[in-house]
Design a protein around this nucleic acid. Structure first.
Length: 274
DNA sequence: CGTCGAGCCTGAAGGC
DNA sequence: TGCCTTCAGGCTCGAC
C-alpha cells in the first residue's frame, strides 16, 4: 500500500487528528526490530518529547520532535492509527506511543518490514533521497538530469529512491503507461519529448492518487483505527494488475512482465521497446 | 555502474 | 475442505 500518495494520505489524516502538538507520554514496543532493535534506546529518545510537526518526505512519515525526529517507513504492510487509549494491543501491533492529551498512536505491521526510527538529525537519512515529482522545481530539466545518459532501464531507475523519491511499483507502471514508455527502455535513450511527457505523467499519477486518498489493493488499509482513510485510487488504475484486460487507450490486451525483478504491467502496443 | 538473487516476514490467493 | 505453493505495494546486502 505505501507509496507517496498513500503516505501523504496518512500524513494528512494524522494532521487532521491533531497529532502535532501532542506529547509522547510513554512507549510500548512489541517487536524491537520495528524501532531499530534497541527498545530501551528508542524509549529514552522519544519519551517526554513533544511532536511539533507531521510531514512527509518520499515514502517517509516524519514526526518532528522538540529534539530530533522519528521517521516512519511503512514498507509493505505498515499502518498507523490514532485513537483513544485503552484497547489491548492487537495482533501485529509493533509499537504504541501513548500521547497526551489522551490518545495513542499505533504502528501496526503484519509483515514486520516497516520501521519507526529515531534520528537526532533526520536529514542524515532524508538527505539521501532524490527529488520528488511533486516538488516545485520538478519538470523535464530535472528529470533529464536524473536520466543523464544512463544505460539502466527506466523503471528500476524510477523506483530508486535516491534518484526519484516516492514512487513504487503501482505509480511507476501507471506513469510509464501514461507517457507511453516501455519499462525496459534505457533511461538515457529517451527523446526530449518523451522525457517531458514522463515528467508530467509522474506528477499526474501521484496527484490523482492523492486526490483519491491512495490506492487500496487486496485487503490493505481501510479506515484503520480512527484515521478515516478511504482509499479509492484502485478504481482509477489503468494498467497495474490488469494483465489480460484491454488497454484503456487502444484496446490491446495488457501484459505482465518482470522488470528488474518486479512485476510490471504494460500495453504492448502503446509502450514499445524500440 | 548495473543486474541478480536472497533475505526480511506474514497472509491471501490459486492449484490440486 | 484442506494442504501446499506462489506471490505481494519495499528495501538492503553481497556476488558477479
Amino acid at each position: 500500500m505505501p507509496e507517496l500518495p498513500e503516505v501523504e494520505s496518512v500524513v494528512q489524516a494524522m494532521n487532521g487528528a491533531g497529532v502535532a502538538g501532542s506529547r509522547i507520554e510513554s512507549v510500548q514496543v512489541f517487536w524491537p526490530r520495528s524501532v531499530g532493535g534497541d527498545t530501551r534506546w528508542f524509549e529514552r529518545a522519544v519519551t517526554g518529547q513533544r511532536i511539533v510537526g507531521v510531514s512527509r518526505r518520499g515514502k517517509f512519515i516524519r514526526l518532528d520532535l522538540s529534539r530530533g525526529a522519528v521517521l516512519v517507513h511503512l514498507r509493505m504492510s505498515g499502518m498507523i492509527s490514532v485513537a483513544p487509549c485503552g484497547p489491548p494491543p492487537r495482533l501485529h501491533d509493533r509499537a504504541i506511543l501513548t500521547l497526551e492529551p489522551s490518545r495513542e498512536l499505533r504502528f501496526h505491521d503484519p509483515r514486520k518490514f516497516g520501521r519507526m526510527l529515531y534520528y537526532e538529525d533526520p536529514e542524515e537519512r532524508l538527505g539521501q533521497l532524490g527529488p520528488e515529482p511533486l516538488d516545485e522545481g520538478w519538470g523535464p530539466v530535472v528529470l533529464q538530469q536524473i536520466l543523464g545518459n544512463r544505460k539502466r532501464m527506466i523503471k528500476p531507475l524510477l523506483l530508486d529512491q535516491e534518484r526519484v523519491a516516492g514512487l513504487g511499483n503501482i505509480y511507476a507502471d501507471e506513469a510509464l503507461w501514461l507517457a507511453q514508455v516501455h519499462p525496459e527502455r534505457r533511461a538515457g535513450d529517451l527523446s526530449p519529448e518523451v522525457v517531458a511527457r514522463l515528467a508530467v505523467a509522474l506528477r499526474e499519477v501521484l496527484l490523482q492518487g492523492i486526490r483519491n486518498g491512495g490506492t487500496r489493493l487486496g485487503s490493505g488499509m481501510g479506515n484503520f483505527g480512527g484515521l478515516d482513510l478511504n482509499p479509492a485510487n484502485q478504481h482509477a488504475l489503468r494498467v497495474f494488475r490488469r494483465a489480460g484486460l484491454p488497454c484503456p487507450r487502444c484496446g490491446t490486451t495488457l501484459e505482465r512482465l518482470i522488470v528488474g525483478g518486479r512485476s510490471s504491467h504494460v500495453c504492448p502496443r502503446c509502450q514499445r521497446l524500440r
